[in-house]
Amino acid sequence: MRDLQPSLNQTQRVRLQSALRQLHSLPSSSSSSPLSSVAVADPIQVNHDDNILKGHGTLDCDGEVVATLCGVVERVNKLVYVRALRARYKPEVGDIIVGRVIEIAPKRWRLEINFSQVAVLMLSSMNLPDGIQRRRTAVDELNMRSIFEENDVICAEVRGFQHDGSLHLQARSQKYGKLERGQLLTVPAYLVKRRKQHFHHLEQYGVDLIIGCNGFIWVGEHVEAGENVGMLVEDQKKTSTAEEESWSFTPLETRKHICRIANAVRLLSALGFTLTVEAIVDTAEASLASNIEINDMLGAEFFVQTAEREVQRRASMVRKKG
């Protein structure tokens, strides 16, 4: 996501600063572990008797472990490392990701998923459109473009790393596959936490929201799983004139909801808040409740209001706990 920087006036700036200060003073929701965010050259507290292993982003300096990256200190048994924020996405097995096809190679598609290398989706690790389980033949291989083309946005699951270090994906279910009729947003990957559910059908809006673990977020018109394979492309080939194309456009009402949700995602990522479906829907609801035009959601006033609402939410959570 390219940075959104609304031009605030004097009072809005003061309000935003006070809201951000309060957010700093409030403990965040996952504050069970001691505060462990470090900047470059910050010392990391370790118990030297434990024989720790220094991992990525750490350095031994005069008997003290210091950080060489800005990020969060992670501890796995003896290993201590720093997970950098604002870095590329680091896949874990089972993550649901959204990616864009950049190349079709023999028996595989290569996908851009904001990882340090391209991900590979093998023809054999995805369901065929007819749904029959069988060996993939040379004919299937020749027809790969009828499944996914270059630049298509698709949704898949991380299957694992191969021996040579390349990342493999799989799409063995009806819910994975090509995404159409909507827009793709990119946010920093650290704003998305892995949860049980990444596919959301927001029924009140008729919108599908897929929050990919790699920070690619899809907001689009709702489609029933498995019904849309290649439908749109065939439609378009038939309808050549602009007159006929206009019938297949997303209905205006749904489009309004898509844009509102998308702007909620843009706003939350600009503020640096974790993107959960609850936060996104809350923000969209709040904008509806205070009668804010879709475009003005990216303006200064709603930007500040969203920050203040987050302060209230976290403060009430602390009160409940206390």
Partner: peptide
């Protein structure tokens, strides 16, 4: 790089006077 679906969505948005970021056709960004 945009997929057919996204291109179609953008064209539809312009035809319906509601672009991807919620702007109207004759509206500037901030």
């Amino acid at each position: 790089g945009l997929s057919e679906g996204e291109k179609h969505f953008i064209r539809g948005g312009i035809a319906q006077d509601l672009r991807s970021d919620g702007r109207k056709r004759l509206q500037f960004r901030s």
